[in-house]
Design a protein around this nucleic acid. Structure first.
Lengths: 196, 196, 196, 196
DNA sequence: AATGAATGAGTGTTCATTCAT
DNA sequence: GATGAATGAACACTCATTCAT
């Protein structure tokens, strides 16, 4: 299954371009990556990029938007496979792990994009933040967590924690399988929320 | 007190330059910020920047390195004002809040620098990560948290959570005073670690 | 009758191409017109242009050369329908008007091509200038105009005047029918030459 | 005296740029002239051009606008040195000659700019056309030419004739001094208008 | 130390041309 | 003949850096 980026287009050069672009974006940043580098990495002529995207910014924005939308709904789905907050924290943690396993570059690109890039996305776009906020709201309604808990802060803490665990994995700081780590992270989060 | 960036130099134009640079770096990113923009914002001629720094990269690296070193030792100090893990989590949370209050731009620049920029720092440099790792080690030695807990993962979760709370504040998503939010965040972290 | 451009080819896409090309050349200039624009305007694929012409320059040169040759002989014919200089001036003036009525774009393309484009035409090619020079020579031989009149200058004045009248018409500066204006212009030229 | 282009700026590289640009524009056309060519011809770095002009189009427009404004008022002044239409035709003819002698490239650039370039000029800008129209109006008021003569057409004929004479000179088709030719052209125009 | 005009390598982008279908 | 995706050289333009003042 393709969690982050649908590369199942016809036999166009688009998948190669996208893959090469993300890999470069994630290591050097969008601004420091040149069109020439992307083209070379994708084994494509420079002009070919402009058949698929209007500009470099458009390419970056499109990848971010598409991947982020895919991940957001994947996160939502994985969370809602469970009824309880405890299960949902576990589901979200697994979603992060699976996304990373599916495509580490894209996962990092999504989770650590610069604010300037995120600002270019559609204003009303549903984000991981919205998924977590909804889940927390439901948990409050169900009496699983205190009604007066600051959801915005909890959402920031949960996503911040999960994202940084992935980054640690990417940096090689984390020993062991990602799935096990995800389960472990979920357990800590459940303790934090008092639903262990 | 100056938590992040010492601007108390003689009557040189350096403080104006660093202040302008950070503000731009944090909104547009280092690569997308031009020397001309920095010079204009600092009300200084373009060439003047080269009296103080060898290059734009050098400027960015120097600010990051200096601020990060300052913050790291500040974080260490604030944590070690307390003997218990509970107190230290509270101290670190406060360190984040104070750093942000002292200079929001610099705080964000430190906490959300791109991997490529961090990679340029001295290999052996002490980072917030090392502060937290040491504290967790001591907490394990004191029996406050399980001996088999994965410190790397906990460090990632703690710093990820605190950093993202700051980002939420910067985005205006968080209502209320930062100090109160810091106390609240510390409480959640204490629950997570079982030291509430 | 086709005065400027023979579009009566078989059922090829050539006429559509030349028509579209001239329209674009005349408004944007040859250099600023792209193959893609021509192809789009002619409802033809870009590659199709290269079935008919070797290059964009070749296309422009061919249109210019063909149309100019057609116009030059048309101008000659219309002039020589009359024996006197007065009549011939009238005939030439009518030739300009008819050419414009036949195909305004092509007429403007011929009359206001850039020097660089004209320079690419065959060196020995007969031009409107040659037609007028011959007619002036004959008028001198017939004693209609002074033997010492500078034919080159007169030719420039006559063609410059007639061409610019057409341009004024194209710009919408000229009220009234073009044929009447042509007659009027001829009258002024006849006065100039003293053959009214 | 500087008839067309004021090159008396401080000791900047602007005059060299302007001179080189006009020379290239007039032989190859604006669109076909590259920034590199201009820079090389002006013995200046490419980036230097952008200290003085925002873009290549801006450069072309600025030169055209400035030179055309200068020429238009020069034409006006030379014409109005005389009270009669005959004198004014002579004055205008001289203005053309002097402009060409002052700077042949600029004169040609003005008189034979492509329609697309002229279209970019300020809408309300005074043009040679307006000068001639005013003079013809006054000549009609003074009874020197018929009240019902089409001024637009006469203006086109006069300017077209004078411009093309200059072009003939530039092409080397015209023998003799330009001033003498100007006087001769003026005589023909006076005959045309019936004020010889 | 400070200036800012000048530099030119390097960037994103365009577009005439090719060629497999 | 016709197509249009792919190409890559060439373009306009940017910007970090230098240096004479």
């Amino acid at each position: 299954m393709n969690v982050l980026l649908d590369a199942s287009k016809k036999d166009t050069k688009l998948p190669a371009i996208t893959r090469a672009a993300v890999a470069l974006f994630v290591t050097r940043g969008v601004a420091s990556t040149t069109i020439r580098e992307i083209a070379r990495a994708a084994k494509v002529a420079e002009g070919t990029l402009y058949r698929h995207y209007e500009s470099k910014e458009d390419l970056a924005r499109d990848i971010l938007e598409t991947s982020l939308a895919t991940f957001t709904s994947f996160l939502d789905r994985k969370a809602r496979e469970h009824p309880s907050l405890a299960g949902r924290l576990r589901g979200m943690s697994e979603a992060f792990a699976e996304a990373y396993e599916d495509n580490p570059d894209v996962a990092r690109f999504i989770l650590f994009s610069h604010a300037a890039e995120v600002a270019r996305l559609p204003k009303q776009m549903r984000m991981p933040r919205n998924v977590v906020l909804d889940i927390l709201k439901e948990a409050q309604a169900a009496g699983e967590i205190p009604k007066d808990a600051d959801r915005e802060m909890l959402q920031a803490m949960i996503l911040g924690a999960l994202a940084r665990v992935l980054l640690a994995k990417a940096y090689g700081d984390l020993k062991g399988g990602l799935r096990e780590k995800a389960a472990e992270a979920a357990t800590w989060l459940q303790r934090m929320m008092g639903v262990a």
